[in-house]
């Protein structure tokens, strides 16, 4: 009899502990999910999803991220109507030749809707790196980017090493680019 009650008691304790633990787990899940921002930009350490976009100033020539395997890639989301985006363009232009040598490509994904405006901008700033046209914002949606500028640094394995939301300074930009130079 005594043994039986002890067994019963243990069973009861296990039962209660399990139920409470399951419910505590659900509550914690709810609180954490709720605290998270609704949509977060694709995270550090993830594989960068592929995309294929038309290049400005070419007759329909497209570039795909997957074609750049083996190179470090910096993807910069920008638009002409975004002030801070304009400010970092000269930095990118300045560092581009040096890092292209080292095997790093810069892709500037533009979100304007009128080619004329962007073309004027490219001419005005004398940009030599490829500017890609994401007219419908598909790539922006794919990467869950909601605020401009946003910059991703992808290493030669296609993994996202760093993401920066907001403007970059020249020195920061250089540091991040240095990180994705492919090893020889």
């Amino acid at each position: 009899m005594k043994e039986q009650t002890l067994k019963k008691k243990r069973k009861r304790l296990v039962f209660r502990t399990v139920i409470l633990a399951v419910m505590a787990g659900l509550v914690i899940f709810a609180l954490i999910s709720n605290a998270k921002e609704e949509k977060s930009v694709i995270a550090k350490g993830e594989q960068a999803p592929n995309f294929q976009l038309q290049k400005f100033g070419s007759d329909g020539e497209t570039m795909a991220l997957n074609d750049l395997k083996g190179k470090g890639v910096m993807v910069n989301f920008w638009a002409t109507y975004c002030g801070p985006c304009k400010d970092e363009m000269p930095y990118m232009e300045k560092l581009y030749p040096e890092f292209k040598e080292k095997g790093v490509e810069i892709l500037a994904v533009n979100l304007d809707s009128t080619e004329l405006v962007v073309q004027n901008f490219i001419d005005q700033y004398n940009l030599s790196f490829p500017v890609l046209q994401d007219k419908n914002g598909q790539v922006m949606d794919l990467y869950n980017v909601s605020n401009l500028p946003a910059t991703l640094f992808i290493n030669s394995e296609g993994e996202i090493v760093e993401k920066v939301i907001g403007p970059l300074t020249l020195s920061k930009l250089e540091g991040h680019l240095q990180n994705i130079v492919p090893e020889e």
Partner: peptide, 22 residues
């Protein structure tokens, strides 16, 4: 010739800029 086009223009610091693409 269209030298420049501002879809939604505003004057900022005496120069026209566009604040959106619409």
């Amino acid at each position: 010739e269209i030298n420049n086009y501002f879809p939604e223009y505003e004057m900022q610091e005496g120069a026209p800029v566009s604040v959106s693409k619409y």
